[in-house]
Design a protein around this nucleic acid. Structure first.
Length: 773
DNA sequence: GGTGGCCCATTTTTT
DNA sequence: ATGGGCCACC
């Protein structure tokens, strides 16, 4: 038989060679799921199935790309290229583009990201004169999103008394009206939001039987990865498409379902066997990734969940180290511990930083870790947070590009119509919006016909509007002959955006200008890549990529090995030798928002399970007794998850001490003005561990040092300390040498030669330099 | 209509 | 702590 089959265990092999009919692969963490999926697709192709007839849906673009590469390794590049592989959103965006006219959308429809959606909803709430305290735009959006993911259209909403009652009860009787207006406005703008990409696909398949038949015939073999995180809308798409041939293979792990907050429905995987009674079930239970201690510890935690499928993950790997538990005084100390520990493990085991990963529940926790790693000169890459494409200066340019593709794109238009300033103010935009709503046209069309309609805008402003419109129209014409890079470059030049940014010359704007440059380079790379691969290199294609890209997908430019910092959600599917899970505190992890119901808590527990099972060799769990949150120092209790791990797998670096019970009835901060008693800290018991002593010495930082770094408010401490010849470190530019100083007090500047960006003059009071040599 | 300063929320996770 | 939104003044 084929050689690749020999590298598989029995369960994996069975799953790979099962060709037809419905099947489910329950894949425990680290059980070689991707291998199985990859080989299964390759095997199908070797059995004569045409790549064009295989649809494989993944959770991230990155997963799709990697899988495609691996399949190419087995069946060859040219064949692999024909596979339909990608995220639900990207695959169906592509299909929607080619069928858009049926739904009344232009084929070059815009994809609204969350920011666009929130802004539109904010505008609608304002136009409807609703109280934005009661109607919080983000909350409204998430409600609308959940409607869409459950296929509750506007009409379905108004036909459903229960839903309306619920909103009435929540004192938000206008939710349905906002929903309706939001959908109308998206439609008028030729825009779909993320949920529309799924909802409209369902609409397409439901309303047009011939379209359904076409895709049913095209996708004879369907595979869905991470099935536990599909929502109802995705579920229905898959069911519809698979309805004819029923060659449907879903893969997932119910223990790793962590996206219910965005509508994922764990029941999809739990009920798969009910949907297809003649389903074949395969269980991948052998874990190849982690040590026994890690696998068993993870099992001991997840065992507490009631909702789960029956499976037993095991490993034949070594027992390995115990899982280390570390308590620190503060989040700052937690960061320093992590940095110190990573450094020691790197030194002791001759490891590069890319073997380490720090996982946290919320993005905001990254800061303390970053600070500590930077101080130790350990390279790190931070994933998530505000993505590059969300930054204002980038979104502004993208908005210009979007308008060129789709002039009805309302959100793009509103961003740029007066940026850079061209004398078109809020009042004008309000009037245009009212007219647009009245005539059921887009704002851009209103501007086009501004002389022909009754609108209260004076002639000077009309002129400005027409100048703006003409500029866009001109650029549109240019965009027909230029490629995406050239047109972006033209936009930047013609709109004088960079000039506008440069005019106030603070270091922040310097970085903005660089970001713009980076965007242009990115577009250039995109075009080169696509042309090389013989794929669509158009501006539309670029914008779609951007809209659906996650932070992971934007490849980091330098490939210097670095420690990875990310939220646990983002770590799904990844693995690292050493994993640090930080912030294991009640109200943080599990999150305070997720402790109200059993199912929410179970999801947090699955999240913890995911985090722990990322580790191959060593895991560290840390928690801090105090932490800065909302700009305030708060006390924390250790997470219940620490208690839930079977003790035999744990090693307490800091001894486990009974926490003083906290009075939950009275907020002690109301006594803040009372005289402070002596703060008694429990002596640390040093029974077992020498290595702790070493660590302790390293990580205890004099208290005043912390103060110093935090009171950078008024007089910058480094003002006087920096001298010519110092080696300093800058947040973004990295290390550099001070070659000259000028000015006094707040105007004092240093000229610094950076290896990365060359010479720069920076105002010391802003530059936040650290002397490192 | 534009700009600058003040105030406020923000921190759960993301395609 | 920090950025974004809003208001008041130019």
């Amino acid at each position: 038989m084929n050689t690749y089959l020999n590298s598989l265990n029995e369960a994996q092999k069975q799953a790979v060679i099962q060709k037809d009919g419905p099947m489910i692969i329950i894949a425990g963490a680290g059980s070689g799921k991707t291998r199985v999926l990859t080989y299964r697709i390759a095997h199908l192709m070797q059995q004569g199935v045409d790549a064009f007839n295989i649809l494989s849906l993944t959770f991230t673009n990155k997963a799709a790309r990697e899988m495609k590469e691996r399949i190419a390794g087995v069946v060859g590049q040219s064949e692999a290229k024909n596979l339909w592989m990608g995220t639900f959103h990207s695959v169906f965006a592509r299909i929607l583009r080619s069928e858009a006219d049926k739904l009344g959308f232009p084929s070059n429809f815009t994809i609204y990201d969350t920011q666009d959606s929130v802004r539109l909803i904010t505008a609608i709430i304002k136009e409807m004169n609703l109280d934005k305290e009661r109607y919080k735009p983000k909350q409204i959006l998430s409600r609308i999103s959940s409607f869409k993911n459950s296929l509750i259209t506007v009409r379905a909403y108004f036909n459903n008394p229960d839903l309306q009652e619920a909103d009435m009860h929540a004192s938000r009787p206008k939710v349905g009206d906002i929903y309706k207006e939001y959908v109308d406005r998206c439609f008028k703008s030729g825009a779909m939001d993320f949920d529309d990409l799924l909802l409209r696909t369902n609409e397409l398949l439901a309303r047009f039987p011939e379209v359904l038949a076409k895709y049913q015939d095209r996708f004879r073999y369907i595979m869905v990865d991470e099935y536990q995180d599909t929502n109802h809308s995705q579920y229905l798409i898959v069911r519809s498409l698979a309805d004819k041939y029923e060659n449907i293979c879903v893969v997932g792990d119910d223990s790793q379902s962590i996206y219910s907050f965005r509508g994922a429905n764990i029941q999809n995987i739990l009920n798969f066997q009910k949907d297809y009674p003649d389903v074949k079930t395969f269980k991948l239970e052998q874990n190849y990734r982690s040590t026994k201690n890690i696998v068993n510890a993870a099992n001991s935690v997840i065992a507490r969940n009631k909702t789960k499928l029956d499976k037993e993950v095991w490993t034949s790997n070594d027992a390995g180290d115990s899982i280390n538990v570390m308590r620190t005084i503060s989040d700052g100390e937690e960061g320093r511990f992590v940095a110190q520990s990573i450094w020691e493990n790197m030194m002791n085991n001759q490891l590069t930083p890319d073997n380490f990963c720090v996982l946290y529940r919320t993005n905001s926790q990254s800061r303390a870790i970053e600070d500590a790693l930077r101080k130790k000169n350990i390279d790190y890459t931070i994933y998530g947070g505000i993505s590059f494409y969300q930054r204002k200066e980038i979104k502004d340019i993208l908005s210009y590009l979007r308008i060129l593709i789709n002039q009805n794109d309302e959100e793009a238009l509103k961003r740029i119509i007066n940026y850079p300033a061209r004398g078109i103010g809020a009042t004008t935009i309000d009037r245009l919006t009212i007219a647009a709503n009245h005539y059921k046209k887009s704002i851009f069309e209103i501007i086009k016909y501004i002389d022909k309609i009754d609108i209260k805008i004076n002639s000077g402003t009309k002129n400005k509007l027409q100048n703006f419109m003409n500029m866009i129209l001109r650029l549109q014409i240019e965009s027909q002959t230029k490629n995406a890079f050239e047109i972006a470059e033209t936009v930047v030049k013609q709109t004088r955006l960079i000039k506008d940014l440069e005019k106030d010359g603070t270091p922040e704007t310097v970085s903005k200008v660089e970001n713009v440059q980076e965007l242009l380079n990115g577009i250039k790379d995109f075009i080169t890549d696509k042309i090389e691969e013989g794929e669509d290199a158009s501006l539309t294609s670029f914008l779609e990529d951007v809209a659906l890209a996650t932070d992971f997908d934007s490849k980091k430019n330098d490939n210097k090995p670095s420690v990875s910092l990310m939220t646990i959600h983002q770590s799904k599917g990844l693995e690292y030798q050493y994993v640090y899970i930080v912030g294991l505190e009640e109200n943080l992890f599990p999150s305070a928002m997720s402790m109200n119901t059993r199912s929410e808590l179970e999801e947090e527990r699955r999240l913890f399970y995911v985090a722990l099972t990322r580790a191959e060799k060593v895991a560290y769990l840390t928690y801090a007794q105090t932490r800065y949150r909302w700009g305030k120092l708060i006390d924390s209790e250790p997470s219940r998850f620490l208690e839930e791990i079977d003790d035999q797998f744990l090693y307490y670096i800091t001894p486990k001490i009974p926490e003083p019970s906290i009075n939950r009835f009275v907020d002690k901060s109301i006594f803040d003005d009372a005289p402070k008693g002596i703060r008694f800290q429990k002596p640390i018991q040093r029974k077992k561990m020498e290595r702790n002593l070493v660590r302790k010495k390293e990580i205890i930082i004099p208290k005043n040092l912390k103060k110093v770094s935090q009171t950078n408010a008024k007089p910058n401490l480094f003002d006087e300390s920096i001298v010519v010849g110092n080696i300093v470190e800058h947040n973004r530019f990295g290390a550099g040498e001070v070659i000259a100083l000028e000015g006094k007090g707040p105007n004092k500047k240093a000229e610094i030669k950076f290896s990365t960006v060359g010479k720069k003059k920076l105002l010391l009071q802003f530059a936040k330099l650290k002397v490192i040599g």
